[in-house]
């Protein structure tokens, strides 16, 4: 487990200091789309320069290194308790070594634990998988973009949103319109639809782990994701809410079966620094 611990520290370093290639490519494409001499273009140029310098000097892309969210696929026979311990130990080490900003605050005493560990911090999801490979996915989820996420219960009369995909579309547009530039756009938008509140919030966040090039396995949802991306970009909020053509880089949707009486839609947004990475062990 010691070697695994060090592997996770390195995963932290990689995820905090570099951005996935698909996101960087999408930001470059966005730069070429924005108008010459606009604030949006200059903001994107600074973002891309920031990504380059962070990678080269191995420093965190953003000072908010976020809430670490782990998704572990665990082969049968490996102790989930031990794995949890190892992730927590690696988090303490990474906070000091990378360094990460200490972000775990006790709700009662308001004290910062100083090492990014605490009750439910980091977030760890474990799931048993077939085969013998342990897969560890890590997302560093910034606070600014987390704060602009929204949960909807359909129908929502004020949005004229019924219990159908058009209702979902209205929720997504509403959430982004309300977010404006507060969560550091261009955003990556994750949508979760299903029967229960806890399930859809987890589902929407898990969508942020998908590559931007990843196509939804449902053809209907794949088409819907594309349409939503186009419409979100029509809002004109732009990079950093300074106006422009690129408000989002991607929209990804995950669905579960719903209860006849319930239709929950959750929207998670990532800032442009959609920091995610994988360790295969």
């Amino acid at each position: 487990m010691l070697k695994l611990r060090d592997g996770i520290v390195e995963l932290y370093r990689k995820v905090a200091t570099s951005i996935p290639p698909d996101v960087e490519e999408a930001l470059k494409a966005a730069l070429s789309r924005e108008q010459e001499g606009s604030a949006a273009k200059s903001a994107l140029a600074i973002i891309l320069e920031n990504i380059r310098v962070a990678r080269e000097t191995s420093r965190p892309i953003c000072q908010d290194t976020g809430v670490p969210v782990f998704y572990l696929q665990v082969p049968s026979g490996l102790s989930q308790l031990d794995l949890r311990e190892t992730v927590i130990e690696a988090t303490r080490l990474a906070t000091e070594k990378v360094p990460l900003r200490a972000n775990a605050v006790d709700v009662i005493s308001e004290k910062n634990s100083g090492d990014n560990t605490g009750d439910g911090f980091p977030v760890i999801y474990l799931e048993e998988t077939g085969g013998s490979t342990l897969t560890i996915d890590l997302m560093l989820k910034g606070g600014g973009s987390e704060n602009v996420g929204q949960l909807y219960k359909l129908p929502a009369p004020e949005l004229m949103a019924q219990r159908d995909l058009d209702g979902v579309r209205r929720c997504v547009l509403d959430a982004v319109q309300k977010a404006q530039g507060k969560g550091c756009p261009p955003y990556v938008i994750g949508v979760g639809i299903g029967a229960s509140k806890d399930q859809v919030t987890r589902l929407s966040k898990a969508q942020l782990m998908r590559r931007l090039s990843d196509t939804n396995k449902s053809e209907e949802l794949a088409i819907f994701e594309k349409r939503l991306l186009e419409e979100v970009n029509e809002l004109g909020i732009g990079p950093h809410g300074l106006g422009g053509r690129t408000t989002a880089l991607g929209v990804k949707i995950g669905v579960n079966h719903r209860h006849p009486a319930s239709y929950f839609v959750d929207i998670s947004m990532s800032c442009w620094a959609d920091r995610r990475g994988r360790l295969i062990w």
């Binding site: 949103a161 530039g181 732009g238």
Partner: peptide, 23 residues
């Protein structure tokens, strides 16, 4: 206030895309 202007513009666009009433 550029934020306010952009918010109003994006809200207008939102209404165009959804036909929703003011909320």
């Amino acid at each position: 206030d550029m934020h306010r202007v952009l918010e109003a513009e994006s809200y207008k666009k939102f209404l165009e895309l959804t036909g929703a009433q003011k909320h």
